[in-house]
Simulated scan of single mutants.
Amino acid sequence: MANVLSGIRIPDSKIAREAAELVRQHEAELLFNHSVRVFVFGAMKGIRQNLKFDSELLYVAALFHDLGLVDAYHTETKRFEVDGADAAREFLRSHGIPEAKADLVWEAIALHTTPGIPQYMRPEIALTNAGVLVDVIGIGYDEYTPEQRNQVIAAFPRGDNFKSDFIQVQTCSALKKPLTTYGTVNFDYIREHDPAFHLPNACARIRNAPWQT
């Protein structure tokens, strides 16, 4: 892997290397490259905004953020974000990282698809979310120079069909456990695949609550 991209150094500590090796074992190039791009774009934004953040923790959060999409870390009842967050926290605990730092990474991963909240939280959480948003849907795209974007893509390519391939991966995960997509953006993957599929909406759940009034 490239060591430095537009001034952003890829962490090379023992933990960082082992995290990357673990994720590489389970993720295809599509997700692995996306995860590293999430780190680099997030770190770029952090530096641009003069934020103080732990680069190693941000890197681990970015690496693990989509690990819940792969079979080895898939559970039947948890959102894929939580599966990835659990895996990251267990990994950090096994390396003697303090609980507070492991919990911070857990929160960054668990909240990375949640709109409107991460940007107000600690930098590692906000920057994981920001990296995801720019790489997947282009929010903040123009905040990066063409040279920055091109350098990142050259080092960690998107491939020829990243958009459609990424949607397919997310859709496969959502279809395995559709009830976990209630109230999340993940339901959109199911709805596009099967417009007839419906989950109970918030109003129906309120009306069906066991209270008398």
Rank of each mutant, 00 (worst) to 15 (best):
L92V: 02
M1Q: 10
S35E: 05
Q148T: 09
S55P: 06
L104Y: 04
F53R: 00
I153A: 07
L67Q: 01
A174Q: 13
L69W: 03
S94C: 06
A2I: 13
I10N: 03
K101P: 00
V40W: 10
T145N: 10
V38D: 01
T128W: 02
D86Y: 00
P98F: 09
Q168D: 14
I137M: 10
V38T: 07
L104Q: 12
T181K: 01
A28T: 15
R48F: 01
Y182H: 14
Y189V: 04
T114Q: 03
Q25T: 13
A130L: 02
I117H: 03
A110N: 14
T213D: 05
D142I: 03
N161K: 14
K177C: 04
A100G: 02
A87L: 00
I167D: 12
A100V: 11
L199F: 08
R149H: 12
R205M: 15
F39R: 00
P115A: 04
C203T: 02
I109T: 00
A62H: 02
G7I: 07
E124D: 07
D142V: 05
K101M: 09
H34N: 13
H198T: 06
Y120N: 10
A155Q: 03
E143A: 11
R48V: 04
G183F: 14
L5T: 04
A204Q: 13
A126L: 09
D135E: 13
